[in-house]
Write a protein that binds this DNA or RNA. Structure first.
Lengths: 344, 344
DNA sequence: CTGAAAGCGCTAACAT
DNA sequence: ATGTTAGCGCTTTCAG
């Protein structure tokens, strides 16, 4: 049988309350008593029952993280960062995959499913958009990650999509590229707040600031942002015969797919085409050539998100702060694909 | 206030037991009563408190998954598969990262920490080895993943390391390679049961069967199996001037690093060197050139592991089955790096 | 078919 | 400084 506090109390010859005091590091316990209790715990192999504790305290010590899927590098690295950040607050992380499925995303935000065992939720939507922000129940501690939904009733941690995308294109302009293609735009063209839309906006702003006319043929829609689709888009662009000497891929996965297609076609990078991606996933440092990218501050995003969530969890029910929008710092990481040095 | 079963019962004008019956899909509830309860649940936005349920039932509906780190592709993909498999059993997955830290691995297997909130644990060790198998408490449902520990007191799901490694080298031999280098051997040379050791054994077996003498200079120790270390080992091998026309990298990450180093040095793959990796991570399909690999059956491993764990969780305390060792099926995936067709 | 009541293991008042 | 006790919200006998 699994030992309980009662068993420990009996073994140590004290009351259950004293055991509780020792476990929770309360003051007012005589050292000798404490020792007796600790050795009883050791001896019986006692572990607190976290369900009971959770029932009593209203806290489980676990937060949920809902992402599309971990096989996508960006989300694996995000989950890694989130788990590390949560650890600092002594929180476990229950990971849920939505597989980019709208119904599952709805289930997650409406609090169905398993996530009731958690004290709060970090949610990175892939299908839910601006129009769905009413679905989010502001009653449960909740932090939104990414850029698909703005102005919701909850905290929101995201990146400077427009300005960092502009900086990426500026980087290509600085090294003398003038015909800069973009892959990863959203297939439907309406302006919106999705990452693709925001990054396209940054692209246009950079060109405009440089006085370069926009060539719509250089903007290629790709969805979803998978490697094979990046490769495919690049093959099409090459086949089209439209000249270009720079490429801004809206994420690194697309960029790596594009590198592959460029390689197949015998194009030199950065000689014929300079390439920059977005996300700065680990892999970017080790492709051939290594890939320049935008580091969106993933660790900072994860840490900020967890901190905000913890604050919301600890918030007294009385005085809720208004929803916060935080944007992380970004930086351009120049590597071989735009003519800079060895991996690093 | 968060509604409880009492609130629902009151709203529906029934007893708490009836609410429980409805929620748990018990028979013997009159349809009209059921409807009344369901609409009360809907109206109040009631969600069962999983801590209370867990306390009562002794089950949390959550299993733990402890891996070194999710930024390593293999583990991200494994976690992805495990989460999907757990879902089928209606289980959540709490992911813990050990960062390849021995003390944290010990904490995990000895049941310290957060994982007490879980019904069972899947553990993929990186530092604990054969000598540590006594640490594993057989009292908690537990399934071991990978190859570092054999003969422990628990179920164990792994792959056919020796024979699949042999098959990988056979593949290189079949396309005519004779000077086959290996990167990723363990720095200390004693024979053991670590994946590196088992795969080296397969390599040797393949050469021996083909009547090719072993050249120890072609076996390169690399640890840990990170991309940069694969690149570094390959640079060293190239610099050494030792001739070779084939490469078996003990995992894909090493292989991708090696591809990068070969590219830098201007070597053709597969022309000058044919390369095969191990793990068949998603990325292998999209490198330049695409990477041949050993698919160790990751989905099968995940599903089997979760199923075994579920069985252990459900096992009556009375009649424990002896520990099971399961090995998944593997297959060789031939791609461009060994002279085969386009990605796929 | 439905209700009443006990108790899972823990924490926090309150009492000593 | 330590003991007693009442729940947290749920499931589960046991009655009705």
């Amino acid at each position: 049988m699994i030992p309980t506090m009662h068993d420990v109390a009996r073994a140590a010859g004290v009351s259950i309350k004293t055991v509780s005091n020792v476990i929770n590091d309360f003051p007012h316990v005589r050292p000798s008593t404490r020792m007796r209790v600790l050795s009883a715990i050791e001896e019986l192999g006692y572990r607190p029952n976290l369900s009971a504790r959770g029932l009593r305290s209203g806290r489980t010590g676990v937060i949920g993280l809902a992402v599309p899927e971990l096989r996508q590098n960006y989300f694996a690295e995000l989950a890694d960062s989130v788990i590390r950040a949560a650890e600092k607050h002594d929180l476990g992380v229950l990971v849920e995959q939505t597989s980019g499925d709208r119904d599952r995303e709805i289930a997650v935000v409406t609090g169905a499913g398993r996530l009731r065992l958690t004290d709060g939720l970090l949610f990175s939507p892939e299908r839910l958009g601006q129009a769905d922000r009413h679905l989010i129940r502001p009653t449960f501690p909740f932090v939104l990650l990414g850029e698909r939904i703005f102005g919701g009733p909850t905290d929101h941690v995201t990146m400077h999509n427009v300005s960092s995308a502009k900086a990426a294109v500026d980087h290509l302009l600085q090294i003398g590229r003038r015909r800069i293609a973009l892959i990863g735009a959203h297939p439907d063209q309406r302006e919106d707040v999705r990452p693709a839309d925001l990054r396209v906006r940054g692209y246009k702003a950079a060109l405009e600031a440089a006085g370069i006319p926009l060539d719509p043929q250089l903007i290629r829609a790709v969805a979803p942002w998978h490697r094979e689709n990046g490769a495919e888009a690049m093959r099409e662009l090459i086949a089209s015969g439209i000249p270009f000497d720079g490429l801004f891929a809206l994420n690194d996965t697309l960029a790596l797919g594009a590198l592959r297609a460029l390689g197949e076609a015998g194009w030199q990078v950065p000689g014929d085409v300079a390439v920059i991606g977005f996300d700065d996933i680990d892999e970017a440092r080790f492709s051939v050539p290594s890939l320049s990218s935008v580091d969106p501050g993933r660790d900072e995003i994860a840490e900020t998100a967890v901190e905000l969530l913890v604050e919301r969890i600890n918030e007294k029910d009385g005085d809720p702060l208004p929803p916060l929008l935080v944007k992380s710092e970004f930086r351009i990481v120049a590597r071989e694909s735009t003519g800079f040095g060895r991996p690093g």
